[in-house]
């Protein structure tokens, strides 16, 4: 599949934003009001900005961005619509939580329920994002039960690294934050490793023979058009598959590097700042590969023997 940068930015930035927001919400739910308003405002601002950048970026992928609001209407059947609805619902809840948590509104009793609710909505939204892709039976690499857990794990890992870096800036860094980030990074690495093993070994159950109905001895003789069409541009992306092995190692390298930096940050707290870019690179390359590696069934009509 063609890895559109707008969609990669959408899934990684909003994932990091929801990961950060959910961790802040859980921190508020368990510890009550934030230590300082500056910390609460800054961290919430970063989380909501990342989410908003991600969502706006997703509309750049649209042919008609001005009609994006229409995407909220079909939540009964469409995961893309559900993702939009969940994202919209999360905003007012997160802002209400932020008002109570920062102390702007004096309602300490509401912090915990609003915090849990915010974290829950973050989880739902990221789950819906993953489901947009994993609900497509036409793409073998996405039609996989690990896709949603991986989206959630990467959201938490990027969010946890951000939490540690922001907390460090405000002198609120505690070792628990580093441990949390390390756990999320390990979870991401393990899930991704198993996922790659699975998609590499999965049976290619769809064949050109079944697609054309012409039997085992069928092969492409003549293509239907002399230049590229939309289908070839969108589904026929091969660069990612060619370099998949190397890029997978890049992802694992940056995940390990982020893990190491978080581990060392328990002694040298300033290292949390370096973990932010390394984790961002890991998430970006992982997401690029998620799209670029995926093969679409339609390739069977264009000469692929199995998919």
């Amino acid at each position: 599949m063609n890895p559109a940068y707008s969609v990669i930015l959408f899934t990684t930035a909003s994932g990091a934003g929801y990961g950060l927001l959910s961790l802040l919400a859980l921190a508020g739910a368990s510890h009550g009001r934030a230590s300082t308003q500056a910390f609460a405002f800054t961290s919430l601002f970063i989380a909501l900005t990342l989410i908003t950048i991600g969502l706006l970026s997703s509309t750049l992928h649209l042919g008609r961005p001005e009609r994006a609001w229409r995407a909220l209407s079909q939540w009964r059947s469409s995961w893309l619509s559900r993702e939009g609805v969940a994202a919209i619902i999360t905003y007012p809840i997160a802002i209400t939580f932020g008002a109570c948590w920062s102390g702007l509104v004096d309602a300490p009793a509401l912090i915990a329920p609003l915090g849990y609710f915010t974290a829950f909505m973050c989880l739902i939204t990221v789950f819906c994002t993953g489901k947009i892709y994993s609900s497509l039976k036409t793409i073998r690499a996405w039609d996989n039960p690990l896709v949603c857990p991986i989206y959630i794990a990467f959201a938490l890992a990027t969010g946890a690294v951000l939490t540690a870096a922001i907390a460090n800036t405000f002198g609120r860094f505690v070792i628990f934050q580093a441990i949390l980030a390390m756990v999320a990074i390990v979870a991401s690495s393990v899930l991704k490793f198993i996922y790659w093993r699975k998609i590499d070994n999965a049976k290619r159950s769809h064949t050109m023979a079944a697609a054309t109905g012409l039997g085992e001895g069928v092969r492409q003789w003549e293509v239907p058009h002399t230049s590229m069409n939309f289908i070839m541009k969108e589904m026929g992306y091969v660069v990612g598959r060619r370099h998949a092995r190397k890029l997978r190692l890049v992802v694992l390298f940056f995940l390990n590097l982020s893990f190491l930096l978080m581990y060392l940050s328990t002694n040298w707290q300033w290292l949390t700042y370096f973990a932010v870019p390394t984790m961002a690179i890991a998430a970006w390359v992982e997401r690029w590969l998620f799209f670029a590696e995926a093969e679409h069934v339609v390739g069977l009509f264009y000469g692929k023997q199995s998919a």
Partner: peptide, 19 residues
Amino acid sequence: TCIGCKLCSWACPYGAREY
């Protein structure tokens, strides 16, 4: 009312939808 998100073309195994 189509927003051009292209998701339908991803969901179709027959490549029937073009942008």
